[in-house]
């Protein structure tokens, strides 16, 4: 298992991936920097308003779509030039290969989330909010957003192992993520739609953002996330274990 992790690490280090990690936190940071207005000049930095604003950019489309890009990336070297045959002819089990690839996808999502948090903390501190950082809300938001990406990563890894084209798995991702723009406003349907969960999970529950589906108990969200994760992961794993490479 450890050897597999090391070999995956070898494949992705020094690749374009490190640039990709910065894109969403960077753009969210720009919105946070120029979009947030203090209620009164010199007043405390509005942490949760900044979080809500940056989340709207980061979690509605970026995070679900980036999860798909990461999943396609960790399969790229195997699709190019018959790498699957080579990798699976080594003394490794398919299950382990699949799990390690999944761990890397979620690891990259985790790094994205940490960078997002770092950018938010940087902006807030620079704007004078250093004294009263609402740690539990910020960490909770970033952590829940990561959890909500579990089912998405599982599905994307499944389609990424299935298709050798880079863009085709992403097209699947886009097909399901575009409806977020409409679904997010619907209190009836959003709680059951896995692709909108990162947004719901990261949005803070105050400051006028408590319309639509943004006020749901976290238990509902968690069961939808975990339920779809189990289905997608087991489906993808069962497919990969039998796939002809």
């Amino acid at each position: 298992m450890l050897a597999l992790i090391r070999s995956e690490w070898l494949k992705i280090r020094r690749s374009v991936i490190w640039l990709l990690l910065l894109v969403s936190p960077g753009l969210a940071g720009l919105i946070g920097l120029f979009g947030v207005r203090e209620e009164q000049p010199g007043g405390p930095f509005p942490w949760l308003i900044a979080l809500a604003l940056m989340t709207a950019l980061h979690a509605m489309l970026f995070l679900p779509l980036l999860t798909g890009v990461y999943a396609a990336l960790v399969c790229r070297y195997e699709h190019a030039g018959g790498g699957w045959k080579q990798l699976l002819s080594l003394p490794v089990t398919r299950t382990r290969v699949y799990i390690v690839k999944f761990l890397f996808v979620m690891g990259l999502v985790a790094l994205t989330q940490l960078l997002f948090l770092a950018v938010l903390l940087l902006i807030g501190t620079a704007k004078g909010g250093g004294g009263a950082i609402p740690w539990s809300e910020l960490l909770g938001s970033v952590g829940r957003g990561w959890l909500a990406c579990l089912p998405l990563a599982a599905l994307q890894l499944a389609v990424s192992t299935a298709w050798s084209s880079f863009a085709a798995p992403l097209a699947v991702n886009v097909v399901f993520t575009i409806p977020n723009m409409l679904v997010a406003n619907s209190a009836d349907y959003a709680p059951y739609y896995p692709w909108v969960q990162p947004l719901l999970a990261m949005m803070p529950h105050q400051n006028g953002y408590d319309f639509g589906a943004f006020t749901l108990p976290s238990l509902t969200l968690l069961s939808v996330v975990m339920g779809s994760f189990v289905v997608f992961f087991l489906g993808g794993w069962a497919y990969f274990a039998r796939k002809a490479v």
Partner: peptide, 18 residues
């Protein structure tokens, strides 16, 4: 490596909405 152009495309879509 198509990850780069596609991420530019995703960023473009999100930025366009703002």
């Amino acid at each position: 490596n198509q990850a780069f152009p596609l991420t530019v495309g995703i960023a473009g879509m999100v930025v366009s909405m703002f």
